[in-house]
């Protein structure tokens, strides 16, 4: 590859890395279907000034299931106390995506679910490992992100949601 161009791109990557550390991040705009088959623009997700949580998962991801089961057990309380809107984003490919709704309904979960079959939102938000959770405040700015699951880490997630919630 042209060496000069390579230097520019490597240097730009470094500069951008610094810039990213300073910039605010909001949910990118991607049109995804939800499990009811309706198309949603992720860039227009709102929650009346309350926090939004985006959680990436897949049907084959065991730590994701453990995390979501733990959150489901407490979700009614979280929603009541903070008004949080919790959105699951499945990264299952289009053959496995047929299993998403049966799993969500079978588990009795009440979460909103979007289907990112082509990993478009996943790529834009730089999700590499799942589970991966993002918390956005009432102004739509990202305040927290966390990948992987350690038993009990849902408690830290809730503390962050409480911090940014206007209903304390």
């Amino acid at each position: 590859m042209y060496p000069q161009l390579q230097k520019i791109i490597f240097a730009a990557a470094l500069l951008l890395t610094v810039t990213i550390a300073c910039g605010a991040q909001s949910i990118p705009s991607v049109k995804l279907k939800n499990i009811e088959g309706k198309t949603i623009d992720t860039g227009k997700l709102r929650n009346n000034g309350n926090p939004i949580v985006i959680s990436f998962f897949a049907t084959w991801c065991k730590p994701c299931m453990r995390e979501l089961t733990a959150i489901d057990a407490m979700f009614d309380e979280w929603e009541e106390q903070t008004g949080v809107r919790f959105i699951l984003v499945s990264i299952d490919d289009a053959q496995n995506v047929q299993k998403v709704r049966p799993l969500v309904d079978g588990q009795g979960w009440d979460f909103e679910v979007l289907l990112d079959v082509n990993s478009e939102l996943k790529r834009l938000m730089q999700v590499q490992q799942i589970p991966h959770v993002f918390v956005f405040d009432g102004n739509g700015k990202m305040v927290y992100n966390h990948s992987g699951y350690t038993d009990g880490s849902e408690n830290d997630l809730y503390q962050k949601i409480l911090e940014v919630s206007k209903k304390k």
């Binding site: 951008l16 890395t17 990213i20 910039g23 605010a24 991040q25 909001s26 834009l124 938000m125 590499q128």
Partner: peptide, 9 residues
Amino acid sequence: GISFFGSLQ
């Protein structure tokens, strides 16, 4: 309204 995201693995 520009956002940047990054990851290092």
